[in-house]
Design a protein around this nucleic acid. Structure first.
Lengths: 210, 210, 210, 210
DNA sequence: GATGAATGAGATTTCATTCAT
DNA sequence: TATGAATGAAATCTCATTCAT
């Protein structure tokens, strides 16, 4: 997990020492477990502190409320999403056609990101309605990735009837939703599933003849 | 909107006269507006009755609780989703390769369904966690459609690295999420966007040479 | 007690019927009893609803919090303070010298006002710090009365070393604080005490030769 | 400010060295600032330690709780109020009529006392409800001063309709409340104001012909 | 059928005080 | 002496649901 200090200073002002950092980490981890089990909305602050084996009062020492905690977690996930963004650097420059393996690598990276933050990604979109700042963070994450995809699709390789802008978003959409639907239907995403998605994206975006 | 009577009898046993029907319709519509504005979880019974310009007491005359209301709305949407399912009948039999226009037609049908019930679809997956029955209904809707897609993809046309089962779901995933992401990013889905998605799906699933 | 409707619409929006009015009155009365017994700050919402024999939830149906309730009470008191203001009309026009009995009448009026709203007046000044609006209301009450006194004192009758502005306020100050100090020291204000205060004010303000 | 050691041993038994004394003084001063800004009841231990730039733990090293701190401050004020009491010694013996200047001197003394401890005096009466001991201290302060006034008024000079007991208290009441009202209305007490009050008290109590 | 009022369980939040280093 | 961290009792507040008219 990312270093606590790297977060958007959820507990605001207070400067944390070693113990404080540990407690905060405990709360963040506990929250992920709780969100995973019951979902964000059904989770009570009580559930979180119970899992973290700490007290109610302590919670409010680190977060001003449940949303604040959520913001911290989302900030962590957003931070990590940059790694996926970096995974694009292995793809050839815009205009050139990538290899299937390149796409597979990127699909893998996104899949791992999704899985690691599943409790958040599952409700990602609804979280955006919780508050402004959260909405913006999530907005950025999605548009960054889809923009990076778009520029790599380019107007040439895409053929007629393809709007690169829409195509980039559609690719991301497939990847993202595929994970939650598979999970919902009880069949977690495995290698074959990722191969399938990779091939579909590869055909759809780059090489219709593959 | 579907006829109130056709619903899964949300208002329990009661037989409704004209006025009663109108009131119930008002509540269902109000709920959609409320969900649209604040999301399902943040919506209070209070919000619904205020929009419907009726009273708390009246609400419970028609629905036994908040979930009951939700079930009624989901039932309406599920009912209508069958139309999309029917749209498959225009596609050629499994094994044969459809035309681009066939796929476009189906994409259009799904898009209209999504748009009409946007407040629900947006949080579709999370709703499943609200209660068992709801989960089953939603589960069916998704698996029906993805199954229908799957059988039409078939093992042959898909080439290596394609699991038809996964492919069908991935296609649905793209369509579904694409709508919510576009909306979230502030650019509603237009014809060009649907054309793009259609072409991507067509290439990905059926015609590598398109 | 003043009519509930006349208040500054503490429960905001909601329109009250007969029963609602009664409940609100019950809560207001209960609050006075509670404030009287334990003081404003020490009083819990719980105390109020217990005295009013109603439920916690009901309280928040009528007031958004304890301060809101306080504002309503202060509004009632401020409303009533106008009566004291009216009592000045029995005094002769500015410039003329009033009779001792005139002053006595006014002292009596203020005393009754104070006694009826003792729990509020006792902490009057500190209440002003609770919130802006409250501060303004209280501010008006005091300055209205002291202004009315001031104009009746006039520059002539006051002699040297008298600033009518300060004198008006000082008179009001004496009256006001005298009540709370007597109460604090355990000797309630009686007729003799009011006679004394009247004579002091009469001598101080109007008739050095009395 | 009074010497820390002179207080009623608020920090319980502990003997303080130089550093300890400084810390305690810092806390007492911080408390006055905090009370001034937000009033006693709204002030949190947290506010005090923040202003004093020290820690929660340290606070409880010097005071056993919040009330203890308050008691220390009140003790300081009560101690100083004796000076006002002493100021009476300049007045002629009971029975004799004092000069206007004598009264002015006493008014001045009280005014200075009030101003120096304004945050406390402003809520003086309500503080009495915080705990028994505090109540007694405050009670004494008021009754001492008003008693001293009373004996100096005497039955003779006061004429009919004057109860010396009530008159003494009324005089004190005027002085006390005048300060807080002026402050509340935004016009601090100046020399002219004190002259006015002096003249009023002089006329009221001693010399109707002044 | 319709409505305003009432309820209370349960969630959130605060903050004086204690603890461990 | 000093301090940051932890505690938990007690308060506030919300809201789905029931009641009485």
């Amino acid at each position: 997990m990312a270093d606590v200090d790297a977060l958007g200073a959820p507990a605001s002002k207070r400067v944390l020492r070693t113990q404080g950092r540990r407690t905060m980490r405990k709360l963040l981890d506990a929250a992920m477990i709780a969100f995973d089990k019951r979902g964000y909305h059904a989770t009570r602050v009580n559930d979180v502190v119970e899992i973290a084996k700490t007290s109610h009062g302590t919670f409010y020492l680190y977060f001003s409320n449940k949303e604040d905690l959520l913001r911290a977690l989302v900030a962590e996930a957003a931070e990590e999403s940059k790694k996926v963004y970096d995974a694009f650097s292995t793809l050839p420059a815009p205009g050139a056609t990538p290899q299937w393996e390149d796409v597979r690598g990127w699909v893998q990276a996104y899949s791992e990101l999704w899985t690691r933050h599943a409790p958040l990604f599952r409700v990602w979109a609804e979280l955006a309605t919780v508050d402004r700042e959260l909405g913006r963070t999530i907005h950025h994450t999605f548009s960054n990735i889809s923009y990076a995809l778009m520029v790599r699709i380019g107007p040439d390789s895409s053929g007629h009837d393809i709007d690169p802008d829409a195509a980039g978003l559609a690719a991301l959409a497939m990847l993202d939703r595929f994970h939650s639907l598979r999970e919902f239907l009880g069949r977690p995403v495995d290698d074959l599933a990722l191969d399938t998605v990779t091939t579909m994206l590869y055909r759809a975006l780059f090489d219709p003849n593959a």
